[in-house]
Design a protein around this nucleic acid. Structure first.
Length: 551
RNA sequence: UGUCCGAUAGUAUAAGGGUAGUACAACGGUUUUUGGUACCGUUUGUCUUGGUUCGAAUCCAGGUCGGACAACCA
């Protein structure tokens, strides 16, 4: 019954730990620093951590890693929570590293008392100079052997605000000759007179990441602390603090972070794009942020499916954007109603159509079980069709409109192109057709078969809308591996705005949750910039296109 | 010049000493009132050299290549 699906290496570790009885309950955490918006790489970690406890039981905490007050903001806390919820996950406890500042301070005191930490008054440069290099050992600080009493005294005065930023640091006393640079007496507390988004001005000393993360995990009884590969070398320190402090032994496991072609994933670079107005905010639909994907029209399900398909491993990877596109098409194909919209219009006149107007019936979604129901589509003798659906001199294998050629108008009749009109510049301005009355969609008795079916909108009934088309944000598949500034590789055509496209009247009551397939043009959703007067649609993704363009 | 991590089709990811499989991509076909969907098919792979073994992607050793590590960032 149960389809045998292979486990990733973390699931194997978890299963082993659970089966061996090492842990009775699985506890994971997702620990973002609230200094930016979450992106698709975070989605991978979110799906992993929450997915594990959904699968094996237990629970997942949301813990904000807020130990650096100068970069962190409540705005980010809020957006990160919204994004996680949107993805469909619920955390057990909402926690903050800053909740543990008192406890962390006590841990530091304990370390000093054990003779395992000391106050250093060297400058940052001096500390760096004695640090050594990856290939040469470092040297002891002149302050390394300060007495426990003196360390305790100065550390207390650091806390009480007696000293300016940078005057003193607290360092773990480990091994200045360790081959692991992180073990060369790492700084664990620094003085920072800065207001914290949660603790305000209560503290002027803040713990470093390494002194906060493992201990926070331990305090929460996190069984499997999962992070990305760049923390591999931190694991030795992570374990050292836990061992010396004699606290719950959380264990750290590392997996490879997600890289996606034609975009950047580092928060620093994304922040730059936002700050320099190279995109329109964190939720610009071209951004790889979760809020950007949401605005672009991605569904939570499609993002989760993507995270499932990319897998979890320790090898560096670069996932092709086409996989993300596949995931959203797969979802929307089954759920999005089909409608008609003409993005680049040209007039089509049916010369033998007498009636003023006629109501046709359109099926909403051939992929849905009930075909999604039907709707009314007004038809008349003057239509807008897509400019690219007409060729004055047809290419080989062209089965759209051309002089003398026939196509079906979707949901309507077969028409034959009899003539066309050009302006002085030689641009085609009108196409004249005759229609075949017996060819009406649904009861076609004409016996004529055409290869092409095109979409259209009745000119007299059409509404207008602004349509925004998106393309890859960067022209390079690996913008951060290129020479020079990654911003030099921004795609100037990543956004195309069509100010007045024609949409069928049924689209007038689109809402922000609706997803549509504009037949033959892709999947679209309403943008939040829409007003009562002006609807704005975003193209989420094009349809897969296997038609080899002529020329 | 050190320590650590990694290497399987174009891209990812399985196979845990016994038939190298799956997905995306690409290409071709069938169906189609979306050049969509669905379905079928094709191409492409174990970094290298040795060793252990009846048998190695898998275990061992050397090499090569890629990545991480010298923030009072996380």
């Amino acid at each position: 019954m149960s389809e045998e699906k292979s486990l990733n290496f973390i699931e194997e570790i978890v299963e082993n730990d659970l089966n061996s009885g090492k842990y009775k309950t699985l506890v994971t955490r997702f620990p973002p620093e609230p200094n930016g918006y979450l992106h698709i790489g975070h989605a991978k970690a979110i799906c992993l951590n929450f997915g594990l406890t959904q699968k094996y039981g237990g629970y997942t905490n949301l813990r904000f890693d807020d130990t650096n007050p100068v970069t962190e903001k409540t705005e980010y806390v809020n957006s990160q929570q919204e994004d996680i919820k949107w993805l469909g996950f619920n955390w057990k406890n909402e926690l903050y590293a800053s909740d543990y500042f008192d406890q962390l301070y006590a841990f530091a005191v304990k370390l000093i008392e054990k003779g395992l930490a000391y106050v250093d008054e060297s400058t940052a440069d001096a500390i760096a100079a004695l640090k050594g290099t990856p290939t040469e050992p470092g040297q002891d600080s002149p302050y390394r052997n300060r007495s426990i009493a003196e360390n305790l005294d100065i550390f207390g005065r650091m806390k009480s605000g007696e000293f300016p930023d940078g005057a003193y640091t607290l360092r773990a006393k480990i091994d200045m000759a360790s081959p692991n640079m992180l073990m060369r007496d790492p700084i664990v507390y620094r003085i920072k007179h800065a207001e914290h988004h949660r603790t305000g001005n209560k503290w002027c000393i803040y713990p470093m990441y390494d002194f906060a993360h493992g201990q926070s995990d331990s305090i929460e009884n996190i069984t499997h602390s999962i992070c990305t590969l760049e923390y591999v070398s931190h694991r030795e320190l992570y374990d050292w603090f836990i061992e010396q402090l004699e606290i719950f032994p959380s264990k750290q496991y590392e997996f490879a972070r997600l890289n996606l072609t034609s975009t950047v994933m580092s928060k620093r670079k994304l922040l730059q794009l936002v700050n320099e107005n190279l995109v329109n905010g964190w939720d610009d639909p071209r951004m790889p942020t979760i809020s950007g994907l949401r605005r672009r029209g991605f569904t939570p399900k499609s993002v989760r499916e993507f995270c499932e398909r990319i897998g979890i491993a320790k090898r560096e990877n670069l996932i092709e954007l086409s996989l993300l596109e596949f995931c959203i098409r797969e979802d929307l194909n089954k759920t999005a109603n089909r409608v008609m919209a003409v993005l680049d219009p040209i007039k089509l006149i049916i010369t033998n159509y007498e009636k003023g107007t006629e109501d046709l019936i359109g099926e909403n979604n051939p992929e849905a079980e009930d075909h999604g129901g039907t709707r009314v589509i007004p038809f008349s003798n003057e239509l807008w069709i897509e400019r690219e659906d007409f060729m004055e001199v047809p290419a080989k294998k062209w089965f759209r409109l051309a002089p003398g050629a026939m196509v079906r108008l979707k949901f309507a009749y077969i028409v034959k192109c009899e003539d066309f009109v050009k302006d002085e510049k030689g641009n085609v301005t009108e196409i004249h057709c005759t229609y075949i009355p017996e060819s009406k969609s649904g009861n076609d008795t004409s016996g004529i078969n055409v290869k092409g079916t095109i979409h259209w909108v009745s000119a007299q009934h059409a509404k207008t809308a602004e349509i925004r088309l998106y393309d890859r944000l960067f022209t390079s598949e690996t913008p951060d591996a290129e020479e020079g500034d990654f911003k030099d590789y921004l795609n100037p055509e990543s956004l195309t705005v069509l100010p007045t496209a024609y949409i069928e009247p049924a689209l007038a009551d689109a809402d922000l949750d609706s997803r549509y397939q504009f037949i033959r043009k892709g999947y679209f959703c309403l943008d939040k910039d829409s007003t009562a007067d002006q609807l704005v649609f975003n193209r989420t993704v094009t349809l897969k296109d296997t038609f080899k363009k002529p020329n």
